[in-house]
Amino acid sequence: MTTIIVGLGNHGMKPMRHSIGNMVVNSLASVLGLSWRSDRQCCGFICETENEKQEQIILLKPRLLMNVNGRSIAKTAQLYRVTPDNIFVIHDELDYAVGKVSIKQGGSANGHNGVKSAINSLRSDVMHRLRVGIGRPTTLSQISPYVLDDFIESEMPLVMSTVDDCVDIIVKRYNLVTATDKLVREQKDDRTKG
Rank of each mutant, 00 (worst) to 15 (best):
S117T: 07
R123W: 09
D92T: 00
Q142A: 12
S124V: 08
N120G: 10
S102D: 12
D125L: 04
L140C: 07
G107M: 11
F88S: 10
P145C: 01
S102K: 12
G133C: 05
E93I: 02
Q142E: 15
R129N: 06
S108E: 07
E93K: 01
I119C: 08
H128D: 07
N120Q: 10
M127N: 06
L122N: 11
D92C: 00
V147N: 00
K104C: 01
E93G: 00
N86E: 09
T139D: 14
V132F: 14
V82F: 12
D95K: 05
V101K: 08
R81D: 11
N110I: 01
S102F: 03
N86Y: 07
N86V: 05
V89Q: 00
I134W: 01
P84Y: 14
G99Q: 03
V89G: 01
I143S: 06
I134A: 03
G111N: 02
H112F: 10
D95N: 14
N110M: 09
Q142S: 13
L94R: 05
R129S: 06
R81M: 15
N113R: 15
G135R: 03
S108P: 08
I103P: 00
L140Q: 06
R123A: 12
D85R: 12
I143G: 03
Y146T: 01
R129A: 12
P137M: 11
I119Q: 08
T139C: 10
I103R: 03
G114K: 06
I119G: 09
N86S: 15
S108I: 05
N120S: 13
Y146N: 03
G114I: 04
P137N: 09
G114Y: 08
H91F: 03
